[in-house]
Write a protein that binds this DNA or RNA. Structure first.
Lengths: 222, 222
DNA sequence: CGGGTTTGGTGACAACGTTACTGAAAGGTG
DNA sequence: CACCTTTCAGTAACGTTGTCACCAAACCCG
C-alpha cells in the first residue's frame, strides 16, 4: 500500500523503517460518508483511525437525549480516546460522527497492540495524543462548570468559523456545542445581533464584527 | 524487593514471571503524608503510582481559584491519567492531593515504557485503567452539564459516606466536589435538613435518613 | 478572656434552564 | 401552484442555580 500518508502525521515521520512497513501493510484506507456514525453506544470501533481528510465530531448523548460536543478529530489527528474505549465499557455513551466525508487510515486492534509494543515512536505518538485529548477534556469541564455562557458562545463562534465569516449551524446544534439549551443560544445570539456583531439567518450565523466577539471571548476567567 | 503487592492489583496477577521480576526490582515503594500535593501545575509526576493504601484526590483548579474534583484514586488503582500528562502539557492545571497517608508503588517513566513494550498484560492493565477514567470523565461532563444540583449532591453525600454515617467536609469542600458555589450547597443542605434526611454540624454532615437521599439520587436523568 | 479566622446562613439579584406556546421558513406531495 | 408537514426560531413566564454583599456563630490561639 502507498505509504505517503505517514508524512501527514508529524509524530510518525521518524518511525523506524521496519515498523513503517508493518503499519502500511497491515492498515487500510477507509472512506466514510458525511453524517455516518463511526462509533457509538453498541457500536465499538474495531480500528484506530488516523484521519487523512475530513472531520469527526465526538459527542456525549444523555439518556434524556441531550447532547454535548466533547471534541473534534481533524485531518492529521487520531481517534485515540476510542482505543481506550474499545474495551467496551458499559456506560460508554459517547459517539463519533463524520461531520464531512472522511478518509482515514484504519489500524486494526491487534496491529495497534503490536505497534505499541514494538515502537517507541509509535508509543510517543499515541500517548502524546492522549495527553492532548485529556487536557482538552479537563478544559471542557472547567468551562462548563465555571464559565459564562455568553463568553463560551463567543469563543465557539470564532472557533467554528472556518475561513468564511459564516457558520452553518442551527441554534439547537450550537446549544449542543456548549451543552446548554436552545433557548439560551437564541437569547444570546439575539443579544449579539443587537450589538451588531452578527447577522442571523435560518440555519446560519454570519460574523459581521468579529472584534466584538473577540473582546467578549477574551474576558475568559477574568 | 518484596513482590507481594502485585497481588493487590487483579490486572497484574497474571503478569509474565520475567516482567514481574523487572517490575518488582525497578520500582520502589513510597509513602506520602496526608495533604501532600503529589503532582500539580509546575510539578510533573516522575512516576506512575499504583496505590497500595490511602486515597488521592485529583482536582482541577481554575485561574479564578475555583476547584472541581475530577476523580479519586483508591487503593488497588493507578494514577494512570497522569502518565499521559507526564508529557508536560502547558495548560495542565489539574493537581493530585493525598487525602490520607498514602503508600504506593512508584514506577519510573522509563520502566513504565519498557513494561508497556514488553508485556501484553501490563498494556491491558494500563489501557483498561485509562478506559475507566475516561468514561468517568465523560460522566462528570454529563452530570455538570445536565444534572440538577440537588440530585448530584445527594449522590455525592452517599458516595462520600464511607461506612460511618458521617461526612467530614465543609460546605466549601462539598461545593468543590460538584463544581458549584458554597452558597448553593448551604441552601441544599438546609433543605435536606428540613426534610430530616441529614443533621448538620460545623465541618460535618450526618446522614440521618439515607433513604431520602437515595430516593432523590435515584431520580437521576429521569 | 479577647481578637482573628474559618465556617455557615441569608437576602437580593443576575444568569441560566425549563416549559409552553407561537409563527415563520423550508421541503415534500399531489 | 396549493396544501401539508417538519424544522427552526422567538418569546414570555417561571424555577433553579450562581453571584454578591453582609452578618453571625464556632473555632483557634495567644
Amino acid at each position: 500500500m502507498n505509504a505517503d500518508w505517514i508524512e501527514q502525521f508529524p509524530g510518525l515521520s521518524r518511525l523506524e523503517p521496519a515498523i513503517r512497513d508493518v503499519l502500511t501493510r497491515k492498515s487500510s484506507i477507509v472512506t466514510v460518508r458525511e453524517g455516518s456514525v463511526i462509533f457509538g453506544p453498541g457500536k465499538s470501533p474495531e480500528n484506530l483511525l488516523l484521519l487523512l481528510d475530513g472531520r469527526v465530531r465526538v459527542q456525549q448523548v444523555s439518556e434524556a437525549g441531550r447532547e454535548i460536543v466533547l471534541y473534534r478529530v481533524e485531518a492529521g489527528q487520531s481517534c485515540v480516546l476510542t482505543t481506550a474505549c474499545l474495551l467496551a465499557h458499559e456506560g460508554y455513551s459517547a459517539e463519533g460522527i463524520a461531520e464531512t466525508d472522511v478518509r482515514a487510515v484504519a489500524i486494526p486492534r491487534t496491529v495497534f497492540d503490536d505497534l505499541i509494543a514494538q515502537s517507541v515512536t509509535f508509543r510517543t505518538f499515541i500517548f502524546t495524543a492522549y495527553s492532548k485529548r485529556i487536557t482538552d477534556l479537563f478544559q471542557i469541564i472547567e468551562d462548563i462548570a465555571f464559565q459564562r455562557v455568553d463568553i463560551r458562545l463567543a469563543q465557539k463562534l470564532l472557533d467554528l468559523e472556518r475561513g468564511t465569516g459564516q457558520i452553518k449551524a442551527t441554534h439547537q446544534q450550537l446549544a449542543a456545542e456548549l451543552g446548554t439549551a436552545r433557548e439560551v443560544i437564541s437569547r444570546q445570539l439575539g443579544e449579539f445581533q443587537r450589538r451588531g456583531w452578527i447577522r442571523q439567518s435560518r440555519g446560519a450565523v454570519e460574523l459581521v464584527e468579529p472584534d466584538g466577539l473577540e473582546r467578549l471571548a477574551a474576558l475568559d476567567a477574568a
